[in-house]
Write a protein that binds this DNA or RNA. Structure first.
Length: 565
RNA sequence: UGACCCGUGGUGUAAUUGGCAACACGUCUGAUUUUGGUUCAGAAGAGUCCAGGUUCGAGCCCUGGCGGGUCAACCA
């Protein structure tokens, strides 16, 4: 239930300072905005949120928390051809799951369509906007290149009256899609392409997920975003680097709108790139649509929903976001940092349990047939309050195939012929016989146990070099376990100019083990419950798991310092 | 041939705003251990893209290079 906590709980008020915090503090010192700090998280509802968004969410809500401000959730829904309520719902669920609360400040760019329209009319009246009837190609040509200035559109000096009439007609649906657009009259010679008379409105005869068929013209993002921030009283518009070049345009629009000194200040930071994965919504959408993964919440996806299903906790994601910091340098963050964050979190909270992934049968020849014993096991050595549980022991067990070697190398100190090891929380056992089938495959181990070592300690003080996990064959729950590996083989799959990122898909990113045995304790587990399978890794119960066929996802393996040679 | 942004160990960040480069991850030792986990102790690894300049002193300031990124969607 700790996952229900809001991010504002906890006492770590001294969050690491970054350049954005520094700028805010400098402004606060100047008394800007009357000391008010107000941020926003502005996703477009055209896809699911990913870990990169989590960074932004943590940053924005973190700023508000640190400086006693507020954060709005605003959907930038200016393009009805790509946006859907399914995405709106998933985004809200993900932000909440991460532990953040936007109160009643849930906004939509579409809330401002009327005001935006009025503002466009104002700009037309001021001679700062005009309707252009040229084709997309011509407009694009006239815009020039970054190196060469653009040239004026022949419609650039149409009178406000005429523009008004045309704009009205656009709104009334009298012009077809693509027939004309409304453009801002800024500067066709600007070195900044975005200032070369950018589009404000286009005709789109599409039904909008919120405004229905009320409009057949829709504002461009660039014409809506800055004003939305302004109307919401946002003081700091934090966004990613690629919008840096848009900033002068946003400022230009807001300067035409504002009535006093207040203007949102945009600050850009570098988006998160994680090694061995892709982070653009376009590519993630492609993976989903072309079925390279099972969906947006496939546990291999870097989406919030994927990470959740994989077994990541909100706390671990927030901790990760905090640790990677915020800068303008764009690089690639090693997934190892993310993995460390979950391990650290899960180590402290995950219920320990024994589960055998690749079973090898063990018969304890001197243990009476039909006899059963219960052993006490610690639920979490990191948290005594989690108590203990009983684990059944009997004559026939399963151990991990990897924990036995017939001809072990020097550094292998698990079970081998003639060798004694400890079964965790149970007894010392010694392997006496290796049973094989006609192919030479080991099918069973015959061992003896030492009754004196009950609980796992020898009264004579003798030691064993290894402790194995095990499960009683008769009592075990059979389960399916899904092992996940990185989705791509390349550290930067999207970073190759001539090779499609899908070329780097890892064919072994999912391994399904259908015959695993877990101790009966997990029977009552609920979807998403976290466990540590001792000596193996962290797992959680998949939402599609059923009591008849339990399914676990491996979140991350335990750190493994022993390397097989 | 343009404009803007960025360059600190392998990776992500820090450096009291000009004072002998710090932290985390990762890696490698060793100790402890009924999880080859955790924990603990320790080590290696950058002299801050390069070259000049200012200064008693530069990762921080200036100049010029070099390298990387972004920008020419009726996408956001």
């Amino acid at each position: 239930m700790t996952e229900k906590k809001t991010a504002t709980e906890g006492a770590e008020k001294k969050a690491p300072t970054n350049f954005i915090h520094q700028q805010i503090e400098a402004e606060l010192a100047e008394g800007k905005n009357d000391g008010r700090v107000h941020t926003r998280f502005p996703p477009e509802p055209n896809g699911y949120l990913h870990i990169g968004h989590a960074k932004s969410i943590c940053l924005n809500f973190g700023i508000a928390e640190k400086y006693n401000g507020l954060t709005n959730l605003r959907f930038d829904d200016t393009n009805p051809t790509k946006e859907e309520t399914e995405y709106v719902d998933s985004i809200k669920a993900d932000v909440r799951w991460l532990g953040f609360d936007w109160g009643d400040r849930e906004y939509y760019a579409s809330d401002y369509f009327d005001k935006l329209y009025e503002f466009a009319v104002t700009l037309i009246n001021r001679g700062l906007a005009y309707v252009d009837f040229q084709s997309q190609e011509i407009i694009s040509q006239q815009r020039g290149t970054p190196q060469r200035p653009g040239i004026d559109s022949p419609y650039r000096n149409t009178s406000p009256e005429e523009n008004l009439m045309h704009f009205e007609k656009m709104r009334n649906g009298e012009y077809d899609e693509g027939h004309c657009v409304l453009r801002a009259k800024v500067d066709m010679a600007s070195p900044n392409m975005h200032m070369r008379d950018p589009l404000m409105y286009r005709v789109l005869k599409k039904t909008h997920h919120r405004t229905g068929d009320k409009w057949c013209i829709y504002p461009m993002y660039d014409f809506a975003h800055g004003q939305s921030d302004y109307w919401e009283g946002i003081t700091h518009s934090v966004c990613t680097l690629e919008f840096e070049i848009h900033r002068p345009l946003y400022d230009w629009f807001v300067d035409e709108l504002k009535t006093d000194d207040y203007r949102p200040r945009q600050i850009e930071f570098s988006r998160l790139n994680l090694s061995y994965t892709v982070m653009s919504k376009r590519r993630l959408l492609e993976l989903v649509q072309k079925k390279y993964v099972s969906g947006w919440d496939d546990p291999r996806m870097p989406t919030i929903s994927g990470l959740r299903r994989r077994g990541y906790t909100p706390e671990s994601i927030r901790k990760f976001s905090e640790r990677i910091g915020v800068t303008k340098v764009d690089g690639v963050t090693d997934v190892a940092l993310l993995e460390h964050a979950v391990r650290e979190d899960l180590n402290k909270r995950a219920q320990r349990v024994m589960g055998v992934l690749n079973p090898l049968k063990v018969v304890i020849t001197n243990f009476p047939e039909g006899k059963e014993e219960m052993n006490q096991a610690v639920n979490n050595p990191e948290d005594e309050s989690m108590g203990k549980r009983s684990v059944p022991f009997s004559r026939e067990l399963y151990i991990e195939r990897d924990d036995f070697m017939e001809d072990p190398p020097r550094k292998f100190f698990r079970l081998a012929p003639g060798r004694e090891v400890r079964l965790r929380y149970a007894y010392f056992i010694t392997c006496n016989e290796v049973v094989k089938d006609e192919n030479g495959e080991i099918t069973e181990l015959r061992c003896t146990y030492d009754p004196e070592t009950k609980g796992g300690n020898a009264p004579d003080g003798r030691k064993v070099k290894a402790t194995l996990h095990w499960v009683s064959a008769k009592h075990a729950v059979k389960a399916e376990v899904r092992l996940y590996d990185r989705l791509f083989n390349d550290p930067d799959p999207a970073g190759h100019k001539d090779v499609d990122f899908k070329e780097f898909l890892n064919p072994d990113s999912l391994t399904i083990l259908s015959e695993c045995y877990v101790e009966p304790f997990v029977k009552d587990a609920q979807p998403l419950d976290h466990f540590q399978f001792e000596r193996i890794g962290y797992f959680n119960l998949d939402p599609e798991s059923t009591p008849e066929k339990m399914r676990f996802n491996r979140t991350v393996s335990l750190r493994e310092t022993w390397k097989k040679m």
